[in-house]
Amino acid sequence: MQGEVNEFKPLIVAFCCNWCSYAGADLAGSSRLSYPADVKIIRVPCSCRVNPLFILRAFQRGADGVIICGCHPGDCHYTTGNYYARRRMTVLFRLLEFMGIDRQRVRVEWVSAAEGAKFALVMNEFAGAVKALGENVKLGDLRCKP
C-alpha cells in the first residue's frame, strides 16, 4: 500500500498541433485507449508554434517531460511548419543536452489524426521513459513547487 502511494508519476506536457495530433489524441480517447492521466495536452495551431520558452516554462512549473506532437512531415496543415519545428527542436534539444539536461525528457513525435493508437503508444512509452529518469530537478523552480 505504502509503495503505491509514494509511486512517482511523471507529469508530462504534450504540445499537440490542432490539425493532426490533437485529433489523434481525441481518437485515442474515443477509441477508449488508455494513456497516463498525467499527460497534460496543450493545443497549439502547429508544432512550429512551440517556442523554446514554452518548453522551459513547462519544466519550470513542474513538468518532468515535454513532448511535441505534430503532423507527419509532408502533411502539415500549413505545408512546412513541422519541417521548421524539426530543425529548431533538433538544435534546441542538443543545446539542452549540452547543458546537461537529460535528452530523454524532451521528444518530438509525428502523430496523424488517424493514429489514435499511435498516440496512446507514444504517450505510454514516453511516460515510461521519463518515469525511469525520475523527477525533473535540473530545470525545476523551487518557487513553483506545490
Binding site: Y83, R87, V108
Partner: peptide, 9 residues
C-alpha cells in the same frame, strides 16, 4: 530553411 530529408529531432 528545411529539407524533407532532415533527421528527426
Amino acid at each position: 530553411d528545411y529539407r524533407a530529408s532532415d533527421g528527426e529531432a
